[in-house]
Design a protein around this nucleic acid. Structure first.
Length: 327
DNA sequence: ACAGCCTCTCGTCAAGAGTT
DNA sequence: AACTCTTGACGAGAGGCTGT
C-alpha cells in the first residue's frame, strides 16, 4: 500500500467537524472504497493523531483522535494550559492585526491558576456527561427556620464583642456573630419546660447550626444564657433578665469605639479566629472540589478510552474492507 | 512490641484570582 | 484599592503496613 500525506484544506479542526468526518466515513464507506490511509501524528505539543483517509474518487477525509485540539485536554497540566492560552493570545493578536506582543500581559495571563469549579463547569458545558460542581448552599440557606425564628425575637442584644443575642418568644436564645456578609455562626438555644429533670429548671438545648452535636444543659427558672466573653473557648453567663437588658451585656458598640488595649486585642483575636475558621472551611471545600474534579476527569478518561478503542476498531475494520479491494 | 516508612487528612500560610 | 475567595505548599498527626 502506498502511503501519501494528504492535507485536507477543508478541515478547520473544530470538534463538530470531527463528528462530521466520522459520519462522512460511515456514509461514504457504503459507496466508495478507501485507497489510502495516512496517519499524521501531531508534531509538537502532543497534538492528537490525525488520520487522513483518501477515497478512490480523489476525496479525502481527515479523522482526528478522540481528544480534539480545540477541546481542553482531560488531564490539564499547567504546561498544556500555558500552550493553549498562548495559542489563543496569538490568535487574538493576529485577528486584531496587532503585531506587537504585550509580553507582560501575556505572562500575567499565563500565570493565572484555574479554579477547579470553573474548569469542571466549562468542561461540563462542553460535555453533557460531566457533572457540574455544585455551589454548596450556605448555612443560612440550609436552615431557613433559624432565620425565621431570628426574625421575630422579643429582644436583641449586642455584646461588647459585637455578637448578637436574640431571645425569641418561644424561649429560644440565639447567639450570632455578625459577618461582613450577614449573620454568621448562628447558635440556637431552645428552652423547654416539659419534663424538666430538676424542679424549676429550664432545659436549654444548645445546638450548633451544622446540626451535629446537640448538647443540653439546665438553666433554673426564667434565667437566660448570654455569651460573656470571646476567645478560643466561648463562655456563657446565666443572668436573670430583671430589665430589658441583661446584666453584663453591653449594648451595641460600634467597632470604632473600641479603645482599651484589651478590647483591641480581643478584636484582633476574634478577627483572626474568624479568618482561620473561614479558611479552614475554604480548604475543606477546595479539597472536596478537587476530589470531585479528579473523579470527573477519571471517568472522562475512561469514557474517552472506550470511545477511542471503538474508533480504532472501526477504522481497522474499514481498512480491512476497503484496503483489500484496492490492492 | 517497636521502629521506620508510607499514605492520608487536616490546618495554616501565602499568593494569585476574582469581586465589589 | 480593598476585600474575599481559591488553591498550592508545607508541616503535623493519625493510621496502616512491614521488617526486626
Amino acid at each position: 500500500m502506498t502511503m501519501e500525506t494528504v492535507v485536507d484544506s477543508q478541515q478547520d479542526g473544530s470538534a463538530s467537524d470531527c463528528v462530521t468526518d466520522r459520519e462522512a466515513i460511515q456514509d461514504q464507506s457504503t459507496h466508495s472504497p478507501v485507497s489510502t490511509v495516512t496517519q499524521v501524528s501531531g508534531a509538537a505539543g502532543g497534538s492528537p493523531t490525525v488520520t487522513v483517509v483518501q477515497l478512490p474518487g480523489g476525496q479525502t477525509v481527515q479523522v482526528q483522535g478522540v481528544i480534539q485540539a480545540t477541546q481542553q485536554s482531560v488531564i490539564q497540566s499547567p504546561q498544556i494550559q500555558t500552550v493553549q492560552i498562548a495559542a489563543i493570545a496569538e490568535t487574538d493578536e493576529s485577528e486584531s492585526g496587532e503585531g506587537v506582543t504585550d509580553s507582560k500581559k501575556r505572562r500575567e495571563i499565563l500565570s493565572r491558576r484555574p479554579s477547579y469549579r470553573k474548569i469542571l463547569n466549562e468542561l461540563s458545558s462542553d460535555t453533557p456527561g460531566v457533572p457540574k460542581i455544585e455551589e454548596e448552599k450556605s448555612e443560612e440557606e440550609v436552615t431557613p427556620s433559624n432565620i425565621a425564628t431570628m426574625a421575630v425575637p422579643t429582644s436583641i442584644y449586642q455584646t461588647s464583642t459585637g455578637q448578637y443575642i436574640a431571645i425569641a418568644q418561644g424561649g429560644t436564645i440565639q447567639i450570632a456573630n455578625p459577618g461582613s456578609d450577614g449573620v454568621q455562626g448562628l447558635q440556637t438555644f431552645t428552652m423547654t419546660n416539659s419534663g424538666t429533670p430538676q424542679p424549676g429548671a429550664t432545659i436549654v438545648q444548645y445546638a450548633t447550626q451544622s446540626g451535629d452535636g446537640t448538647q443540653q444543659f439546665f438553666v433554673p427558672g426564667s434565667q437566660v444564657v448570654v455569651q460573656a466573653a470571646t476567645g478560643d473557648m466561648p463562655t456563657y453567663q446565666i443572668r436573670t433578665p430583671t430589665s430589658s437588658l441583661p446584666q453584663g451585656v453591653v449594648m451595641a458598640a460600634s467597632p470604632g469605639s473600641l479603645h482599651s488595649p484589651q478590647q483591641l486585642s480581643d478584636e484582633v483575636t476574634r478577627k483572626r479566629e474568624h479568618r482561620l475558621m473561614k479558611n479552614r472551611d475554604a480548604a475543606k471545600e477546595c479539597r472536596r472540589r478537587k476530589k470531585e474534579y479528579v473523579k470527573c476527569l477519571e471517568s472522562r478518561v475512561g469514557m474517552l478510552e472506550v470511545q477511542n478503542k471503538k474508533l480504532i476498531e472501526e477504522l481497522e475494520s474499514l481498512k480491512d474492507i476497503y484496503g483489500g479491494k484496492t490492492n
